[in-house]
């Protein structure tokens, strides 16, 4: 099966709390090719469904409907033994570089555990060599960090060590859920750089879950943007960031504070007074209450993904499809 994708997310839906519950993720599909490692950014505001997607891909929660297939395995139907095998191929790096460590153990403990769990090494010397290789991949040296305690390292170093830990397992995919949002700005670049290096030299793909469009733009290949559990826009990251089409994505990109005092926000924006409820019964585009272009047709059904220019650049908006013209 050389042509089948590495990760194939097929029409996955996740509803919390029964048939009338909250739709955290609405019929979402995504493929990551096998032969071409990519950093795929999953972006959106809090509650948009991005972490739900990360948890689904990691097998922490099961889809309500649809299927996630990784390397021929149906992720929603793995036994616990198969799940352990799966996690050799799909690793995770989480947001909090402080909470992921036990403060009583030296840094080497993190590596000892993963080597033991996955039986990666037969001898101590081999284990030590693996740690060194993993740390070298993220620009650190074993002699500098392994004997230290977590509090002796910066947030950036801790997060790079988490990347090294994931890398040691030699996975094909790393799910990185907000890996830089708790790290100081001047140290973020070192982590993002490691991600690019693991992609280019280690052949590892990433699902990079973030609310920060600027870092996605700097390192990402493809981007998918969620709004309230639905896919608003997807495409090559440069196309989407420089030429956003969905009104929500346009507003989002316009609102990112630019580090340039000569280019300040123009115009005032308002938020709707009420939060919209996202039950399974909701129909139509979720952005209608805030959208300057909203029309009756937008309320009828969720707009399909329409092509909006560059290959693979698509937006879920009636502005780009025939349904709007047909209704008017």
């Amino acid at each position: 099966m050389p042509d089948d994708p590495l990760l194939d997310i097929r029409n996955v839906r996740k509803v919390y709390g029964g048939p009338d519950g909250l739709v955290a993720l609405n019929d979402f599909s995504l493929q990551i090719p096998r032969d071409e490692p990519q950093i795929v950014t999953i972006a959106g505001e809090s509650g948009s469904g991005k972490s739900t997607l990360a948890n689904l891909v990691l097998g922490f929660t099961k889809p309500t409907s649809g299927q996630i297939v990784f390397d021929g395995m149906d992720v929603g139907r793995l036994s616990s033994r198969e799940m352990a095998q799966y996690h050799r191929k799909v690793q995770a790096v989480f947001q909090d570089p402080f909470g992921s460590y036990n403060p009583f153990y030296r840094v080497s403990h993190v590596f000892d555990m993963v080597i033991k769990n996955f039986k990666l090494a037969d001898t101590k010397a081999q284990a030590r060599e693996m740690m060194e290789e993993g740390l070298n991949a993220v620009g650190l040296k074993g002699s500098d960090v392994l004997r230290k305690y977590p509090h002796q390292l910066s947030g950036g170093q801790r997060q790079r060590i988490m990347m090294a830990r994931a890398y040691m397992v030699k996975p094909k995919l790393i799910v990185a859920d907000e890996p830089v949002s708790m790290v100081d700005a001047s140290l973020r670049a070192s982590i993002l750089d490691v991600m690019m290096k693991l992609r280019d030299e280690g052949g590892i793909s990433f699902l990079y879950v973030t609310h920060d469009l600027s870092t996605a733009y700097q390192i990402g290949d493809k981007i998918v943007l969620f709004y309230q559990g639905t896919l608003a826009e997807e495409g090559n990251v440069t196309d989407v960031i420089t030429n956003p089409k969905h009104p929500y994505v346009q507003l989002l990109i316009d609102s990112v504070p630019q580090a340039d005092p000569t280019r300040r926000w123009q115009g005032e924006i308002e938020l709707p007074a009420e939060e919209e409820l996202r039950t399974a019964r909701a129909t139509g585009c979720r952005f209608v209450p805030r959208c300057p272009h909203a029309a009756e047709v937008c309320k009828a059904a969720l707009p399909p993904l329409h092509p909006v220019g560059a290959p693979g650049h698509r937006a879920s908006c009636t502005l780009y499809g025939p349904e709007r013209a047909a209704a008017e």
Binding site: S154, Q157, A185, S186, L187, R188, A189, S190, L192, D193, M196, D212, L213, S214, T215, Y217, Q218, I219, T238, I241, I253, V256, Q258, A259
Partner: peptide, 21 residues
């Protein structure tokens, strides 16, 4: 360094990494 470390949304460029602890 603080200003340079802000990733831009208008220009895709190499990341600037600062070392040291």
């Amino acid at each position: 360094i603080l200003i340079d470390s802000v990733p831009s949304l208008t220009q895709r460029q190499a990341l600037r990494i600062t070392g040291g602890i």
